[in-house]
Design a protein around this nucleic acid. Structure first.
Length: 397
DNA sequence: TCTGGGGTCCTAGGACCC
DNA sequence: TCTGGGGTCCTAGGACCC
């Protein structure tokens, strides 16, 4: 989906079309002005001047989506809002409306499934579709079906998307970015050398900042240069698994099927505090947040019908270092108090002398709540705990 | 006054079991 | 006066993605 979060807001506020618009932010949402709907009017009648501006934002949020008129100023996804405010203070800032986003996400996926049922969910705004068995799916290399999907989604939701059609998921993902927004791109296996090899290695889904930098350091910038590397050298340099995989993707090879179903592995809740908190000085407020996170995860599990038995915590310190601890318990659970107790044990095993920026709670090893395993006691690991125990932590939580 | 939240997968060492 | 080998589970950290 094209600039999904921003596009969803533009449906409600068409008066913002063409203006720099940024979606993002944390708890402190400067959206009070949006109550200024004129007498007898709608959301579309709110004057542009009433909308909150980036320069008025106070907090630690990041940008989720920026529209093109905002990107011109150099602001983009994942940028801190404070930095973005210096680049484009007059940009309009709207918070993420998760309920509305989820509704639109379900809607566009349903529209696609009615046309092409073999669909893999890749998050809120992205899917893989297998055209192979869809009637007409091969016409013009898939362009006819892609156009039909685009038009049907737009008619149903008013939203645009970009589609890449290719022999496999690896190439299709790259192709989908060739012609944004509202574009279609068809890439054949025979186009590998002309259309894929000139691309930077970072365009591959799975080659991130670290692998990209390491490739660069070896003078490998494009996929063509990667394809020219000896498989044995790649394995020697990046390890057996990653090295072999890099060789495959550089040659455009990918056999992964489109998966229509998957089970969740873990569920978590985490929060970044408005200011850094200290385990001793801010003990009460930290404890309340901790309890609330456990309650939220428990509610998520119960709502979705899952139980888990690996309970974990995550801390982010003021210097951005991350620490995690987890513990597997004997009984599967979705109970807030049980989660809280196990997570509290985890907290006693992690250093707490340094100010904290973030706290998270996670439940893993999930099974369906109504499955036979959910009732059976599993083996809880009772091995020796040689981990670090901070002198401060014992009585805190 | 930089840097969210919710995920998946991989690696690697140690415990433990047969 | 020597100490195997294979398999699974548990835990911590890290890379990466949307």
């Amino acid at each position: 989906m094209d600039a999904f979060f921003a596009s969803v807001e533009l449906l409600r506020y068409p008066q913002l079309q063409g203006l720099p618009l940024v979606i993002g932010g944390g708890r402190r949402r400067a959206d009070e002005a949006l109550r200024h709907v004129p007498e007898g009017g709608t959301l579309a009648d709110i004057p542009v001047a009433a909308f909150p501006r980036l320069k008025d934002y106070v907090g630690r949020g990041v940008i989720t989506t920026a529209t093109y008129p905002a990107r011109v100023f150099g602001v983009g996804s994942a940028m801190g809002l404070m930095k973005a405010a210096r680049l484009c203070p007059q940009a309009i800032l709207l918070p993420v409306d998760f309920d509305e986003i989820r509704r639109c996400s379900r809607h566009f996926k349903e529209v696609i499934r009615e046309i092409a049922p073999v669909l893999e969910d890749r998050g809120i705004d992205e899917v893989y579709i297998d055209f192979t068995e869809v009637p007409g799916g091969q016409r013009e290399g898939g362009r006819v079906l892609a156009r039909l999907i685009q038009k049907t989604i737009f008619a149903a939701t008013g939203l645009t998307c970009s589609i890449g059609v290719a022999p496999n998921k690896l190439i299709a993902k790259m192709a989908s970015e060739f012609n944004k927004p509202n574009g279609i791109s068809i890439v054949y296996a025979s186009d590998l050398q002309t259309r894929i090899w000139p691309l930077p290695c970072r365009k591959v889904n799975g080659i991130g900042p670290k692998a990209g930098a390491k490739l660069q350091a070896h003078g490998i910038h494009t996929l063509g240069e990667l394809a020219a590397c000896e498989r044995a050298w790649l394995i020697q340099t990046f390890g057996a698994s990653t090295g072999a995989w890099m060789h495959e993707v550089a040659w455009g090879r990918d056999e992964r099927p489109v998966l229509t179903h998957s089970e969740p592995v873990s569920m978590s809740r985490e929060t970044t505090f408005e200011r850094d908190l200290h385990a001793v000085h801010d003990r009460a407020v930290l404890g309340a947040i901790f309890t609330q996170l456990c309650a939220q995860v428990a509610a998520d599990l119960q709502r979705k019908g899952y139980v888990g038995r690996t309970i974990g915590i995550k801390l982010r310190y003021d210097d951005f270092r991350i620490a995690t601890r987890d513990q597997s318990i004997a009984q599967y659970t979705a109970d807030a108090a049980t989660i809280r107790r196990a997570a509290g044990q985890c907290l006693k095993r992690v250093p707490l002398a340094q100010p904290l920026r973030l706290l998270g709670v996670r439940v893993g090893s999930l099974v369906k709540a109504d499955s036979p395993q959910a009732l059976e006691p599993a083996r809880a690991h009772a091995g020796s705990r040689t981990g670090h125990t901070d002198v401060l932590s014992g009585s805190l939580f």
